[in-house]
């Protein structure tokens, strides 16, 4: 089924327990419905091929049959039994996934949906980042699953990484919860699934599943304040004297806006604008000059900086490792 080359978004290539148990149920349902289809399909084909009007028969009407209680009973009871079976399987899997207890070793992440980007907070680790979620590999023997608390800052969104877990919506003042325990490291793709406005389509989502060591390393870097690099003081001046700081945070500087993504460790991310573009100097420049060029309708205004300032700011961004 792997039509999409890895990293993919194929629900038939699960890499964590919730996605796996969903797939098991899916296969079961698919086979039952498949059987029903074959049976009824055959009946249909048979009746239309066998009972078409013949020149001979056209003269007189066929035997007029009005019904039959036995047959009606038969095709009522069999479906009832099928439904019972389907339901039991469903209820079991709902409970298994939805009511799973949170083990002690679990990682807690608060995911906040914004138009049109993701904010990720690690309350226990004191990390705030955006758009690219880092979680540790979970080894089945002593699992370290990640439990997400889902909130929304504005409209409804939906968190969906097909290969890790099913969807759960992010709804204003209606906190939700979901979990996943990835079985292999690597990048997993997904995107916002609930229509949330103009740029719903470019509210993409990247999850990087790290080996425990890499994860620990990542946590350490993220916990640092923004690196102060003398080569970019000019850019920092511009940044801190423009409206940027009303919307963006760079820890350890006056910039403490919350409307936009946290930029403290911007360079640790592979993409900008929640996956709309790769994180290259050129793209950064284009983005800051005119966000609509990359993501028309995004809520970041064009800042109308002079070319010099623009280069300086981009240069500064480049230092935010």
């Amino acid at each position: 089924m792997a039509l999409a080359d890895p990293p993919g978004t194929n629900i038939f290539a699960p890499q964590s327990t919730p996605a796996k148990s969903i797939l098991d149920l899916s296969i079961f349902v698919l086979s039952i419905t498949g059987i029903i289809f074959v049976v009824v399909f055959t009946l249909l084909v048979y009746s239309i091929s066998k009972f078409h009007a013949t020149a001979a028969g056209a003269k007189r009407e066929p035997a007029q049959v009005y019904g039959s209680t036995q047959i009606e009973l038969a095709w009522t009871i069999i479906p009832v039994l099928i439904v019972v079976v389907l339901f039991l399987a469903t209820a079991r899997s709902i409970h298994a996934i939805q009511d799973a207890p949170e083990p002690p070793g679990a990682i807690d992440v608060t995911a906040i949906g914004h138009q049109y980007w993701w904010e990720f907070r690690y309350p226990k680790l004191g990390i705030i980042t955006a758009n690219e979620l880092h979680i540790p590999l979970s080894d089945p023997n002593h699992p370290t699953p990640t439990f997400l608390q889902l909130l929304s800052a504005d409209t409804d969104h939906s968190f969906w990484i097909p290969e890790l877990a099913g969807k759960t919506d992010l709804i204003p003042n209606h906190p939700n919860r979901m979990w996943m325990d990835p079985h292999r490291t690597g990048i997993f793709l997904g995107q916002c699934a609930q229509y949330c406005g103009t740029q719903h389509a470019k509210m993409l989502l990247r999850v990087s599943v790290d080996s425990p060591e890499d994860f620990a390393a990542w946590v350490r870097t993220q916990q640092q304040p923004a690196g102060r690099n003398s080569s970019a003081t000019a850019g920092r001046q511009v940044f801190e004297h423009t409206a940027c700081i009303n919307c963006h945070t760079v820890s350890g500087t006056p910039a403490d806006g919350r409307f936009g993504p946290d930029l403290t460790h911007l360079m640790s991310r592979a993409t900008i604008a929640s996956g709309a573009a790769e994180n290259t100097p050129a793209n950064l420049r284009l983005w800051i000059q005119d966000p609509d060029a990359i993501k028309p309708g995004s809520l970041m205004p064009a800042m109308k900086l002079s070319d010099a300032d623009l280069d300086a700011v981009v240069n500064y961004m480049e230092t935010l490792h």
């Binding site: 629900i11 969903i22 899916s26 469903t90």
Partner: peptide
């Protein structure tokens, strides 16, 4: 017939967590 059966797939909630909104 086919549409109804895909409906049944959607009705199995966990399967729907993957299929919904898609």
């Amino acid at each position: 017939l086919i549409a109804g059966l895909t409906g049944i797939m959607l009705a199995t909630a966990p399967f729907d967590w993957q299929l919904t909104l898609s």
